[in-house]
Design a protein around this nucleic acid. Sequence first.
DNA 1: CAACAGACTATACGATCGTATTTTTTTATG
DNA 2: CATAAAAAAATACGATCGTATAGTCTGTTG
Lengths: 216, 216
Amino acid sequence: MRTVDRKAPATTTEDDALSRRSRILAAAADIFAQQGFDGTSLGTVANAAKVKKSLVQYHFKSKENLWQESIHWVWKQRDHALPKYLLKLPSADTTDNSQMVRDLCRQILTFTFDQPQWVKLMFQEASKPGPRLDWMVDTFFKKDFSDGKAMIEVAQQQGLLPHVNAMDLLHILSGALIYLVNVAPISERVLGEKPNSTQYIDRHINTLMHLLQNAK
Amino acid sequence: MRTVDRKAPATTTEDDALSRRSRILAAAADIFAQQGFDGTSLGTVANAAKVKKSLVQYHFKSKENLWQESIHWVWKQRDHALPKYLLKLPSADTTDNSQMVRDLCRQILTFTFDQPQWVKLMFQEASKPGPRLDWMVDTFFKKDFSDGKAMIEVAQQQGLLPHVNAMDLLHILSGALIYLVNVAPISERVLGEKPNSTQYIDRHINTLMHLLQNAK
DNA sequence: CAACAGACTATACGATCGTATTTTTTTATG
DNA sequence: CATAAAAAAATACGATCGTATAGTCTGTTG
C-alpha cells in the first residue's frame, strides 16, 4: 500500500506535460518580458509556474541566471517558430516582387504579434546600458544584426528593396514593425483599435509598402 | 550676529541655482527614464540630487507621485524646447519641399537625441499594461497622438509627405526615429558607431528621405 | 520675543526581495 | 529493500525598499 500509491505528485507526471523546470522558464520569460528584470521577483515567477519559490532557486542558481536562461529559451523558440511563418510565403515564381515583400513583412509582423516576448525582452533591457545589455549584445544582438543586414542585402540584390544603406534600412523596417508591437498597448488605448488585428496589420503594411514601392 | 549669518544653508540659496525640489525632479526624471519605475529607488534619487531621502518624501508624498511629477516636468521641458529646434528650419519659401522635410526630420531626431528622456520614459512604461500606462495615456499620449496626426496631415496637404493613412505614417516615422534613439545603446555596441553623431544621423535621415521621396 | 509655518532631518517599522542552508521527499540503481 | 542521488520544500537571514512619524532648524509675522 506504500509502493506507488497516489496522493503525492511531488515530482513529475500529473503536473502538465512539461517539466517543472520548463514551466519555470516559460513563466519567467513571460514576466521578464512584461515587467523587466527589476519588476520581476522570484516569488511571482514561482506562483505563475505553480511551484515553490525554493524550486526556482534550486533549478537556477541566481535571478540573473534565470533571466539568461529565459532569454535563451525565448530566442530558441523564436528561431524555431519564425521559419514556419516565412514558409507560408507564396513562391517567388508565381507572384510579383511587390507582393513578395508585402507578404514577407506581414508574416514577420504577424509572427511578432503572436510571439512578442523577444521584442519585449529586447526593449526591456536594451535601452539602458549595463551588464545585462552587454550580455545580450554579445550573446544575441551581434548575430541578429548581422543576419538581418544580410537578409536586407539579399532582398536588395533581387530588386525587392530599394538600394539604400542596408543597416539603415534594417533599422527603419525594424523600427516600423517593432515600434508597432511595443507601442501597441498605447495605441489600443488611444485609438480604441487592436493593433494586432488582421485589418490593422494589413493597413499598416499597406502604408509601409506604399513607401517602399516607388523608391529605388 | 544671529541675523542672516552664513553657516546653515538648510533652506534655499548656496545650493545651486535651482531649488532642491527642482533638483529632485530633474534627478528623478533622469533615473526613471533610464532605469524604469521599479528600477528606481528613492534613495538613489536622493543621492543623485544630493539631498536626504527624507526630503524627497517631504516634497512628494509617494514614489508614484514623484514619478508623475517627474513626467510632467519632462513633458514641460519637451514642449518648451522642441519649438526652438523647429525654428531653426529654413523658411518654406527659400527651399524646396524635399529639403524641408529632411530638415524637419533631422531637427526632430537631433532634439530627441539631445533630450531623450521623454522617449525613454514613454518606452519604459508604455509596453506593459498597468495603471501607470493608463495614466500616461490619459495625461499625455492622447494629446500627443492627436497633435502628431494633425502635423502629418498638414504636411500632407502641403505636399511634403505622401498621401497615405496619417496615423500609420505617424507610427512609421515615429518608429524609424524613436527606434533609433531607443536602440542606440545596442547599435553603439554592435556597430561601434555612435548613433547620435552628426554623420550617423545624416546618413539615417538620407535613407529615410529616399524612401519618402518618390512615394506619393 | 512668542508663535507659527515651512523646509529639512533622523529614525523606525513592516514588507519584500534574493540568497543560503537545511530538511524532507521522490526517484533511480544495485 | 538498502542506498545514494536528484528533486522539492521549509526555514532563516541580511539587505533594501517605501512609508510613516516625530523632531530640528530657519525665517517670518504680529
